[in-house]
Write a protein that binds this DNA or RNA. Structure first.
Lengths: 328, 328
DNA sequence: GTTGGGACTGTAATCGGTTACACCGCCGAT
DNA sequence: ATCGGCGGTGTAACCGATTACAGTCCCAAC
């Protein structure tokens, strides 16, 4: 910038004023500065600007991993919203436990104006200890006291799915659970139980099988359910990956879906549409979650005094396909 | 940092020395500083550090969009490699043409130490005009003179697939092309043509159908092929999305895959495994491409004088599944 | 008893911008 | 004629770190 100023015969202050359209500058001076800046291929140093302005124009995204289309959708939602505000996205994923998480948190601080964090089992105190007060943070899919969150209505979604299956005439509906410590898994289980109770369905505890959201767990659960003496007539998996695993197990056990057994998942991942039979699922507006989270963060950035931003819970939507015996 | 220094009764220089383990500091002083830094919840300002060190410890990733598991895999590869080096990933996607691209390029400059750019139709001069000389850039999947690139061997992969189909006895093999201006599409078409010529297969120009890498285009192409008087016995689509679109068209036309028609794609996206029949494809090491690109960028960052990093071409791998009539 | 050197610490310049403030001309209003 | 105000510009402080350089202190060696 100093070079531009010298070459144009003005001071750095004037150059800065031209570049930011702040303060009055004569027409001829402005033109001359823009011209020499172009000629010198000058691009202003974002780091230095961030330092004086004390804003990085960047929001950080912390994800547990980047595998599969679920996180891909989160990123897409986040990046779209961020770019719309002319901010930047700093991406970070964390695989191994607490140490890496705190390390990531700390290196992100000072580089971002706000943070979107998705970590299924994060605790409030970890956040408090590693983040400076006043840094806007929005959690995705996790309820943490004292922090803004964007979540989906897991319980209502799960209940709606069970009710749908009940309307198809199913009374024995099994559920393949997600990871035990996972908040989403618990909420979906709660929704299942509520719908079973309210619908007067068969509440046999054998119908609830453990899982951990992986396809392999779904496969194992599917084998177990297929081998049951009193086989269920419908199976509701806590996510699509497990539903697909179960589907494979059923097929290998000689069971036809949906003729012998209705099947449904949760998340409505991309693949759900492509398996045969196409998987009935609960659509989760992943993309929108990311976008909403960013909006909340940036709102807090814009008006820091406005206190903790409100948490939002997004509704889910039932997507009926062939696997439950009702859809196309 | 000033606060820490004051509270610990030392100068900022000493604090800095402790935090960076540079220069000698007394044991007691060091302990005292670390303690007060912890008590004050001090985390050093990365922006200021970047300014003095003139390194941002960040690499930028520019992608044409973020939709689908292809880009998701690129990101995963990039982020993994970046994190392994304790760098950060600044993510940016660009949808609309040149203006947005140059804008993105310019805002990224000064925030990153290097760039990984994936833009199918980028031109060398655009890069030159918007990037300061000396900023390491690695292009993904595009050949641009004078720049390091990481590409895959599209032509060999396509040829291998056609040869595989020929070995199954097919002589009339159709090809659904990718976008006309796209380098990948051209290379795959070239591979197809070479294999057809070398294998003495039917070179009917009607067997090459236009497409643009979208599922919709594949569907349209599939309809066209199904309606052909002299129908091909095998179809090789330039990517999986189009193959899946074609699959749908064939099914609707009453054709059985693979009994009536063998089908193959390219990319080996996640979904390829899940469609029925599972799609034979050419596996592309997307994840590794991202990682390699980052390694090249960071190598150039570490030793700027070492000239332009060498370009690398990664091999593809044939993945035989049910859709071509040979696999499981 | 000097003196040299190493361990330790502080002062201040620097990175590349932004901006409060001061300054200068020139204008119209009183 | 004087003055206030405004457009246009420069000077210099500042953002929060790093680090060259210059001490200061202490101890061992001569």
């Amino acid at each position: 910038m100093r070079d531009v100023a010298r070459q144009a015969g003005v001071s750095v202050a004037t150059v800065s004023r031209v570049l930011n359209d702040s303060g009055p500058v004569g027409q001829d001076t402005r033109a001359r500065i823009l011209e020499t800046a172009g000629a010198l291929r000058y691009v202003r140093n974002g780091t230095a600007r961030s330092l004086t302005m004390s804003t990085t124009e960047t929001v950080g995204v912390l994800l547990p991993n980047l595998y599969g289309d679920f996180y891909s959708e989160v990123i897409r939602g986040v990046e779209g919203a961020v770019r719309a505000r002319r901010y930047h996205t700093l991406l970070s994923s964390v695989h191994d436990g607490l140490d890496e998480l705190t390390a990531a948190l700390r290196t992100l601080v000072g580089r971002v104006d706000g943070l979107v964090v998705m970590s299924p089992d994060i605790e409030a105190e970890v956040l408090e200890a590693n983040l400076p007060p006043g840094l806007p943070v929005v959690l995705l899919g996790a309820e943490v006291a004292g922090h803004a969150t964007v979540t989906i209505d897991n319980e209502a979604g799960a209940a709606a799915m069970v009710e749908h299956l009940a309307r198809q005439g199913h009374r024995r509906i099994a559920h393949i659970r997600g990871g035990a410590g996972n908040a989403d898994a618990q909420a979906r289980l709660a929704g299942y139980r509520r719908a079973v109770a309210e619908g007067g369905l068969d509440a046999d505890p054998d119908l609830v099988i453990a899982g951990d959201f992986t396809e392999a767990a779904g496969y194992a659960a599917g084998q177990a359910l297929a081998a049951l003496d009193a086989r269920p007539t419908a199976v509701f998996a806590a996510n699509d990956a497990m539903a697909i695993g179960a589907l494979r197990a059923f097929r290998e056990a000689g069971l036809d879906v949906p003729a012998d057994l209705a099947l449904a998942g949760f998340d409505d991942i991309l693949v759900a549409r492509y398996v045969t039979p196409a998987l009935t699922s609960v659509h989760v507006p992943i993309h929108e979650m990311g976008a909403r989270a960013v909006e909340a963060v940036l709102a807090a950035v814009a008006t820091p005094e406005a206190g903790a931003p409100a948490s939002v819970t997004l509704p889910t939507r039932l997507v009926v396909r062939a696997s439950c015996g009702a859809g196309g």
